[in-house]
Amino acid sequence: MLPDAPELLSLFGIGVVLTLLVGFYSVLTSQNLIRTLIGMEVLTKGVTLLIIVVGYVVGQIALAQALAITLIIIEVAVIVVAVGIVLCVHKHTNSIDTRDLGNLKG
């Protein structure tokens, strides 16, 4: 581990936590499907940041970079699928309100 690990971690750690908070807030409370998806993106970015920082701190930056790139690719795939779903929902209900997706219950 790098000698200034604790400081780096704390600094970036706060950043990560903030990012995650913003992401969760968006996912949980938005009434707009697109905003929800953006929130998902933000969440994933947060953890990517965490991985990079950790990788740097333990000296495995190459591994961390590989992981980050992989993550981004996966995330793209997921988001594409998610947007596809939202598009189909829009075809059905003509809106992108999250409350349209609350029909299955019980």
Binding site: M40, L43, T44, V78, A82, H92, N103, L104
Partner: peptide
């Protein structure tokens, strides 16, 4: 592509994203 299926897929997706966050 029926609304029910879309809803199910979306919920799985969202929760899967949360799972991603936790796992990563």
């Amino acid at each position: 592509r029926d609304l029910g299926g879309l809803e199910g897929a979306f919920k799985y997706l969202i929760l899967s994203a949360v799972a991603t966050v936790l796992m990563l």
